[in-house]
Write a protein that binds this DNA or RNA. Sequence first.
RNA 1: GCGCUCAUAGCUCAACGGAUAGAGCACUUGACUACGGAUCAAGAGGUUGCAGGUUCGAAUCCUGCUGAGCGCACCA
Length: 553
Amino acid sequence: MTPAELSHAVQVAVRAAVEAGELSVDVPETVTVERPKNRDHGDYATNVALQLAKPAGKPPRAVAELVAARLRELPGVAKVDIAGPGFLNITLDAATQGELARSIVETGQAYGRNEALKGLKINLEFVSANPTGPIHIGGVRWAAVGDSLARILKATGADVTTEYYLNDAGVQISKFAASLQAAANGRPVPADGYVGEYIVDIAKAITDGVPGILELPEDEQLQAFRVHGLQLMVAEIKRSMDEFGTHFDTWFSEKSLHDSGAVEKAIERLREQGHVFDQDGAIWLRTTDFGDDKDRVLIKADGETTYFAADAAYYLSKRDRGSEVSVYMLGADHHGYVNRLKAIAACAGDDMNRNIEVKIGQFVKMLRDGEEVRMSKRAGNIITIDDVVDWIGVDAARYTLSRSSTDSTITLDINVLTSQTNENPVYYVQYAHTRMCGVARKAVQLGVDKGTAAEFKPELLATEWENDMLGALGEFPRVVAKAGQHREPHHVARYLEDLAGRYHRLYENCQFLPKGDEELTDTHRARLWLVEATKTVLANGLALLGVSAPERM
RNA sequence: GCGCUCAUAGCUCAACGGAUAGAGCACUUGACUACGGAUCAAGAGGUUGCAGGUUCGAAUCCUGCUGAGCGCACCA
């Protein structure tokens, strides 16, 4: 019996009590059934009686008794206790619980998928770092979290489009081009220009690849560096993302918004909604109508459109392309943008509490020899995505960056991650998977297998370790759904760590295969089903994080 | 000055408003004639920054305070 089925059963029990006239309350739409931390509290616990006590006008324990009496009648339910202030602690038959192992094995890669966000069209934009330099550590966090989130949202039934917004227009690109030109000509980098080895490398790649570029007139030469530099930098970013296992469905060009007239059209649309006004020779969007600190300029007095105008056009583009929920993942230094971005949606007539979500991710701090390594694209002393991958590898990088809530700043100690990689929990999780593969290999060696589904005897999975494991496996779809709904992939990572720990304990306490001269028993077979189910969940979970599930390490 | 985010074990971090706040690492003590010891068992480690409030119940929600990071452009 899955948690979802049990939740439904509890709800039915409440309804029966109401229909029998024993309870006078509205039947709740959903009933929370959770895995108690303390196993003395049964396989599952529900607080439904506590929540219904007040509206029913009865003591919680009295309500609990009414529900418990009905649950006890259900097949598969072994015991129902009332504990504490009125919790219902439910214990299932071993066979009912054990059935889950077969069900998971048969569901395979699809186990964990759910429909919590069924059909919801989500546009997920992340990284979107300026193409004026390599992706730095902050962007790496978003690459890991954003890509994992996309996988999780898909597993939760959403229709997801991932997107990288390329700021390929504007002043920063001009500075980038000027920096390349200066480097190529052996001139000092202009003020506010970009420095760093990558500038020299790209400049060299351009002069090598475009013969005669240094003989062009100054302005033509600058334009050539702009075009080729942008091209090379974007290619470099795409390569890094690809190697990091991060996929974007769309690479969206800011320049295309300007070139196509989308920016002007967006302003017109916002004007029709009545939120655009003229003042001091500039054209403004009245974002203060929707919680922003101040109104924002769309077109400056000199006639130039602002970056904010492109943002507005970009939001409308996402909307026009079918997005119901546009999720922006921004760094903590951009938190001031939250209100103005949401105001764009509101000014366009959308629901700013539903159609747009802006997630703020806290910084990643890196330590080396106990000192913080500052990251600055302009200083040239930067930690790039390639550095991180070289140091700790894709799996460890993705896992480490995905296992914490984006709300918290995280500190990565380079010395620890480079010298003692086994301190990273990803190895703990991956090792559990390799051990399960080892069991499978050993079984083949012994010439035994778990038998057919019809031969599987779920009631033999009765020890506390097996029960713990089954309970944890049953949680997986709910964990994925929660991670998707909260847009927080770290729930999946933490769950996998817990699962790996349970597996290691199970391994210590339950023999899966016959030793020496022993015969293969039904208990062995049942446990092999459980091991395979566990392996399935671990592999599915790691896949959601974009981390490999190795067969050997 | 205004605003956003954060504050949990020595460290890095968890905890749909639920029961005794948990993992990993580090530390102490044990377990390898094994299905991979990259493991397990046990121990120690906490007034969840401080003070109030809300309720059956608060690390979680509300208010104030303290501390930290960040942001407050007709820049991009």
